[in-house]
Every structure is written in structure tokens, then in C-alpha cells.
């Protein structure tokens, strides 16, 4: 049964991924990205990682894709409604092939047999995150804060130049 659902989720992820790359309309590409995110959340759900699945939907589906769409729509959409020549495709090809090789090697070398799947209780997750890994967690939030302040600084300077 879970193989069946995995096939559906994997199909959504792969079709969405192809859509992101191949769509000529940039809004379609952004919506395909949403499909990839939802499919990935589905795969997490099959792996009994409910928390991760919901976070995936909340952060990537709810925030990141919406911000991308928002930015696309604030620009003049007619200017690049149809994407054409992309000069950097050889570089992209090299990077993606090397990632594929990396993943294949790591899968083939690390032979681990899964006997039984079990989910992680959310309270256990919270205790681990905020007790054992508190400092890395806070560091990550610090990085986000710096990015936020940086964005404000950049926008401020731009505004003053315009005036």
C-alpha cells in the first residue's frame, strides 16, 4: 500500500521537477515548484515524518513559493512571460549530474536495511531540538535574523538613492 502512495508522490515530484525546468511560462514554473514541495511532503508523510511533512508545506509551500510568485507578479510579467534561451545550461547540467553521481554513490556505498519504520514523537523531537541541539538551533535562527536585517538595510539604501 505504501509503495502505491510512494509511486504517486514520486510521480508528482518528478513531473513537477520537469515542469519547473521545462515550462516556458514562468508562473507555471513557480506552480510546478509548489507541486514538487507538496510531493516531497507526501514522501515525508509516507516515511512517518509527520512534523517534517507539515513544516515542508508551511515553509516551502506556504511561504517560499508564495514569495516567489509575489516577486514575479510585482515585476512586469509581460517582459519574461515566456522564458527562452538560457545561457548557463552546460553549467547547470554539470552540477546536476555531479549531484546525481554523489547521491548514487552514497546510496550504493551505505547499504542499510530498514526492518521496521517508526515515527518520532513530537515531544521527543522538541526536547532533542531545544536541549541537546539548542546552540546549533539558535545559530540557525541568528543566520535568519542577519538575513532579515540585511534585507532591510539593502532596501533602505536603495530608497534613499531614488529620492
Amino acid at each position: 500500500m505504501s509503495v502505491f502512495f510512494f509511486a504517486i508522490a514520486a510521480f508528482i515530484v518528478i513531473a513537477g521537477g520537469i515542469g519547473v525546468v521545462a515550462a516556458r511560462n514562468i508562473v507555471y514554473a513557480a506552480l510546478s515548484l509548489l507541486a514538487v514541495m507538496v510531493g516531497t511532503a507526501g514522501i515525508f508523510l509516507i516515511g512517518l515524518a509527520e512534523f517534517l511533512a507539515l513544516v515542508q508545506l508551511l515553509i516551502y509551500g506556504g511561504a517560499v513559493v508564495i514569495v516567489i510568485l509575489f516577486a514575479l507578479m510585482l515585476t512586469r510579467i509581460q517582459d519574461f512571460e515566456f522564458l527562452s534561451a538560457n545561457k548557463h545550461w552546460p553549467l547547470a547540467l554539470i552540477v546536476s549530474i555531479s549531484f546525481l553521481v554523489l547521491f548514487l554513490i552514497s546510496i550504493l556505498v551505505n547499504k542499510r536495511t530498514i526492518t521496521e519504520m517508526s515515527g518520532v514523537d513530537i515531544s521527543e523531537l522538541g526536547l532533542t531540538l531545544f536541549a541537546d541541539w539548542a546552540i546549533p538551533f539558535e545559530l540557525a535562527s541568528l543566520v535568519l535574523l542577519i538575513a532579515l536585517i540585511g534585507a532591510v538595510v539593502v532596501v533602505r539604501r536603495d530608497n534613499e538613492e531614488n529620492r
Binding site: 509548489l34 507539515l54 513544516v55 508545506l57 508551511l58 509551500g61 506556504g62 511561504a63 508564495i66 510568485l69
Partner: peptide, 10 residues
């Protein structure tokens, strides 16, 4: 609930 409701903005 919070995670799903966010998607309606789309």
C-alpha cells in the same frame, strides 16, 4: 491546521 490553511493564499 496552520500548515494547510497557509496554502489558500496561492
Amino acid at each position: 491546521i496552520t500548515a494547510i490553511s497557509v496554502l489558500s493564499v496561492m
